[in-house]
Amino acid sequence: MIKRVRWGLWLLVVLALTLFALFAIQLSRPKDNFVHSGMIGKPIPEFALKPAVDDRPGLSSADLAQGEPHLLNIFASWCVPCAAEAPQLAELEAQGANIVSVAIRDRPEDVRAFLDMYGNPYSRIGADDLSEVQFAIGSSGVPETFVVDGKGVIQYQHIGDIREDDVPMLLEKLKGAGQ
């Protein structure tokens, strides 16, 4: 009888230790508040957006499957970090990246003013007034930047503004998508 009680107590100790080990593992993991897109590795869903400004064409899913890899930047004129990443986008463009974009919930005159102020690195800008393309590709905010290969398959998602040290990484991803 005593032996059985002992055995039960040891079991409790083991259970408690397992639980604490679980806590330790989970707590030592870095916190990740980002909502990652589930569309990585999948072809970009079909869409066709009207132009957001008059000097750049709009954007459709077909434009992204012409053989050349693209950076797809999700931005908005009302988004402060989008202004912060403008120099990095300019640098990416200068280094040969073809950047297309989707403007979320934006008026043409606001997009115009934004581009006049921070520069225009985009070859195409589609206007997504109902955030439909944003939902379709699993983007949960602005700015976000997707790497899309020449077949129109989404290869990578960068969440948040592009910092100076993200530039080489994104160029690398873009190069990888081109092979």
């Binding site: 004129s77 007034d129 109902l130 955030s131």
Partner: peptide, 12 residues
């Protein structure tokens, strides 16, 4: 102002 502008577009 820039944050306010998010609501310039009428709701869906």
């Amino acid at each position: 102002l820039p944050l306010q502008a998010q609501n310039d577009l009428p709701p869906a």
